[in-house]
Design a protein around this nucleic acid. Structure first.
Lengths: 231, 231
DNA sequence: TAGATTGTTAATCGATTAACAATC
DNA sequence: TAGATTGTTAATCGATTAACAATC
């Protein structure tokens, strides 16, 4: 095993896709697979699967491939998903409420344990047994509860402030839904969720105003579609 | 101006952030800025700002910098954001409803013009004057309306099918909220929205179970925080 | 004109892929 | 053992940064 001082963040970002895929395979009762098969499912090359995994150790068997159950466990541990993480949600508007009600985090090692809002109409409300607290309490409550993950779902204008308060309370990982570039100290990690930006980059590729005549109404040729049924 | 056959997708992905930042600057009545200042706001290097823009033309003035209003217009046009785009939303569960009610797309060149659901309880419901249609109609309706953008908010197990139907109807850009790797023909562009995956990659960096004693309760040192107040 | 800052090319850095010896 | 497939190193590809001539 190669020892690396820092593992590239691109690699870390791919690991959740690996975990998800491995779990799906377990559900399908697949017990083992080669890097070739894994790559096909995950949508990356076999070489990349092997390269990525090699940063963390040796998980395969030459000539045979990988034991799915073993590998799933290994990657789960690498990402520290073998426990539940508390997260503090800030913002309880349309978006915040949708996030609070979302039942996808729970099955995936996360739990929204605290919710904060500025709007007095929201403070005191309750979701899944979690009471919405007043925003000024962010730093203190987060510190007291030892929460290390923050989810920001406030308007752009308030986001930097919220981030600062979360960080002051000990938060070191932020999921940011607000359309702003947050300035963060470099011991804090962040990911952005920006559906609008995603759409705005897609339209670059949609040039003509209308589908041109050549647009086939037959089924897409699907070179890629054929190679793995997957999922 | 350099002529490039294809502009790297990484560059295209940054442009929406540029647009957003430029609009923010306009709102602040900033009339011009150097690549240095823009880079500071956007969170990339000055060299990158200049390099990225150079793929599309010359937008600055030596010795002076960029006219914000002019540049905003230019990037808006490059991304084809100077019109409104219809999008078809598929899925009307918790997530789909949240997306349908989201009032952030409208101010940003997008409009959810059609909604599809499989669940009979959802079909026939109405949001902002848009009636939820039965899922089997996807291909025909999308084709008829000339919709070229699809938003997938269905369970993972149904996502590939939905994508295929959208594409058969002429959709060429997909925003995918389902946690699956979609297999798409290469004339179709896609972006993934995966908050769970984002959180799962963040926990890699949160090693210890609890904040260690050394965690400072003082304000984060903020090397970066200081350099630009921004936003 | 002198100072500032662009647009662009060359140098550097980083990530992906190809290749293959090791080995199950 | 022969065939398959890993783990790893070297080669390639692509993206970012540095540097600077052009020019406002």
């Amino acid at each position: 095993m190669m020892k690396h001082d820092v593992i590239p963040d691109v690699v870390i970002r791919r690991l959740p896709v690996y975990v998800r895929t491995l779990r799906q395979m377990l559900a399908e009762q697949v017990t083992s697979a080669s890097s070739e098969e894994l790559g096909l499912r995950v949508g990356v090359s076999a070489a990349q699967i092997r390269r990525d995994l090699s940063y963390f150790g040796r998980f395969g068997t030459q000539g045979k491939g990988y034991d799915i159950q073993q590998l799933e466990l290994a990657v789960t541990r690498i990402l520290h998903l073998d426990r539940q993480w508390d997260a503090a949600l800030v913002g309880f508007g349309h978006l915040g409420q949708a996030i609070a009600q979302y039942h996808g985090f729970e099955q995936n090692s996360f739990r929204i344990s605290t919710i904060f809002a500025r709007n007095p109409d929201h403070v005191g409300q309750q979701v899944n047994g979690v009471v919405v607290l007043d925003a000024p309490a962010i730093t203190d409550v987060v510190r007291e509860m030892g929460v290390r993950i923050g989810i920001i779902a406030v308007p752009a204008s308030a986001a930097q402030d919220v981030a600062d308060q979360l960080i002051a309370g000990g938060v070191r990982a932020i999921l940011n839904y607000a359309p702003v570039i947050l300035r963060l100290p470099d011991n804090v990690w962040m990911r952005e969720i920006d559906p609008t930006g995603a759409l705005q980059s897609l339209t670059y590729y949609l040039s003509a105003d209308r589908p041109t005549g050549k647009t086939p109404h037959t089924r897409a040729s699907g070179r890629i579609l054929d190679e793995a049924a997957g999922e």
